[in-house]
Design a protein around this nucleic acid. Structure first.
Lengths: 327, 327
DNA sequence: GTGAAAGCGCTAACAG
DNA sequence: CTGTTAGCGCTTTCAC
């Protein structure tokens, strides 16, 4: 049904290999012959089968990206940036969501490997990446982004300065007179959540009070309950540090207008339009995506140096909520 | 380097075909032989090469999705839903961004076709899809989502009730006493923008005033200028209808606190947390994605009926901004 | 139950 | 400059 090189060859009255030469822009074809071949290609509507090409060449010009969820703005931004770099290198991007489940992460990675991607960028959901060993041994480069790999493997990694950013946020609140600063974080099993907790503790030092810390998946009811419990303490918090974008938004809903000073990790659209504007520690997802992709292509170009560990800075954006004074 | 079926075969002391039978769960293999083969597979870390399989079978178990930009929440939600359906059917999703450029759209589609995807879901950027003819003739099903195909081709399509939703939004504002209702829309060359303008006009009837309409790509400065011009009129607008999510947000920024009644097309996170809450006409991107994907798989299952044209309803969510009275 | 041979569409390695 | 041959890793067909 669909025309192949063979069809083009017989249509143009040349050998298969000549068509291949023309299609691939290889030198050593007489202009007139090339023209005849091109005419046949147009006439038949031929397009090269990339799978067959990949099979023969041993490279598929394909990169796999595993993220938690495309519908999360952070990962959507990262994806877009990765896609741009991948396209610029003439490759195709496969991307898949792990939904924060280690099992799915592995399935997605294995699906990509079965398609013989040339390289992988992974935002891990699990903390056991021994299953990647075989893939790494066959020479497929892997870059981890946002979170480091778990047990045993050591590869290029791009992380944000999670602990430093959290510390910065909390110091900012301390500087505005708060000493009772609560922390709402994601499940501490997640690397970024644990790092941000560490930064929070480091900034607070002796002021740390475990009753002001709640870490779990950000469901509205849970957050409401956690905040309610904290605010009912004898010495309730006067400020809040939230550990990611979703938690910041959920906390805003749960607060229902109660004026607590607030700094959130991750920037989000409309943070500036709320009253007061929401102060945040902002990461740059596109930057992270670009760096991860560039690192991967450097490996693909043959760079065999030791694994690189890049840490991207974050920046504090004061917008009002983090500068509220103590009551 | 990487083990092939041949390697597994010799490791297990059987013929290639027997390995193939085991890998594909075909019947007619002695349990003991199958066990030996499975052991060899595990020992060597074998995984079937899906490209080679696809090449031989003529189907790649791959679906292509072309959207405008993954980083846009609407398309991110649509993508995620498509991905879920595609995975549930045991296929892999390729997705690419057109960036609203017809040329890129075509490039992405052609890249996918060169990989021999089994089907395509397209949110078109251009309005000429004659280039898809060849692909359709070879039997690759195509579903259009969010916007219909342009010239000449007629395929399954899933659209939202754009005109109806816009009409609903404007009637809502009229019901609250406004007669000077401005419209900020995207470039009218974009199907959804044109439809929403049509709905706006239909609702306004004789109240329509072209000076209250501005349609172009939503850059903040442009929106600010357009709004400024409208508000300086003798009879300035007392209400505003914005034609998509990005425009709603941009308009909110440009308004800088001036209290105009407002209804926006597209829901967005935090619309409920702003003061007043932003009333919107909401589409369901995940629903659109699911319907498009299901339609595609129905075709893949062999349904040869005439093209379907699905229109998804939208719903008005009043949150305050659309219920503001006239000054 | 099992296996040998052919071939999917392409490129690499050599001939002419 | 052009063509022939082999083979990438797999499934299909048919023979044992």
């Amino acid at each position: 049904m669909r025309p192949t090189m063979k069809d083009v060859a017989s249509a143009a009255g040349v050998a298969l290999k000549t068509v291949s030469r023309v299609v691939n822009g290889e030198p050593g074809v007489h202009p007139a012959t090339a023209e005849r071949v091109r005419a046949a290609i147009d006439r038949l509507g031929y397009s090269r089968n990339e799978s067959a090409r990949g099979l023969r060449r041993g490279m598929t010009a394909t990169i796999g990206l595993v993220i938690e969820d495309v519908a999360d703005p952070f990962y959507a931004g990262l994806s877009r940036a990765v896609e741009d770099v991948v396209i610029a290198h003439g490759c195709l991007l496969l991307s898949g969501s792990s939904g924060e489940e280690p099992g799915r992460e592995r399935e997605v990675v294995e699906t990509f490997c079965a398609r013989r991607v040339d390289g992988l960028i992974v935002v891990p959901a699990g903390d056991d990446h021994a299953y990647l060993r075989g893939e790494l041994e066959t020479g497929t480069p892997v870059v981890f982004a946002d979170r480091p790999p778990g047990s045993g493997i050591d590869v290029d990694t791009v992380l944000a300065d999670n602990a430093g950013g959290a510390e910065r946020a909390v110091r900012h609140l301390l500087a505005h007179g708060h000493h009772r600063i609560a922390f709402l974080g994601d499940d501490p099993a997640i690397y970024t959540a644990a790092e941000r907790l560490a930064g929070y503790r480091r900034a607070l030092g002796g002021l740390f009070d475990p009753r002001l810390v709640a870490m779990r998946t950000p469901a509205l009811d849970d957050v409401r309950a956690d905040l309610g419990r904290m605010l009912a303490l004898d010495e309730p918090p006067t400020a809040l540090f939230t550990g990611n974008g979703r938690l910041t938004v959920t906390a805003l809903r749960a607060l229902e207008g109660r004026r607590l000073a607030l700094v959130g990790f991750d920037d989000f659209e409309l943070a500036d339009l709320l009253r007061p504007g929401v102060s945040v520690v902002a990461q740059d997802p596109a930057w992270m995506g670009r760096v991860a992709a560039e690192l991967l292509f450097r490996r693909l170009r043959g760079d065999g140096g030791p694994p690189e560990h890049v840490e991207l800075p974050v920046r504090l954006i004061p917008r009002g909520s983090g500068e509220l004074p103590t009551p």
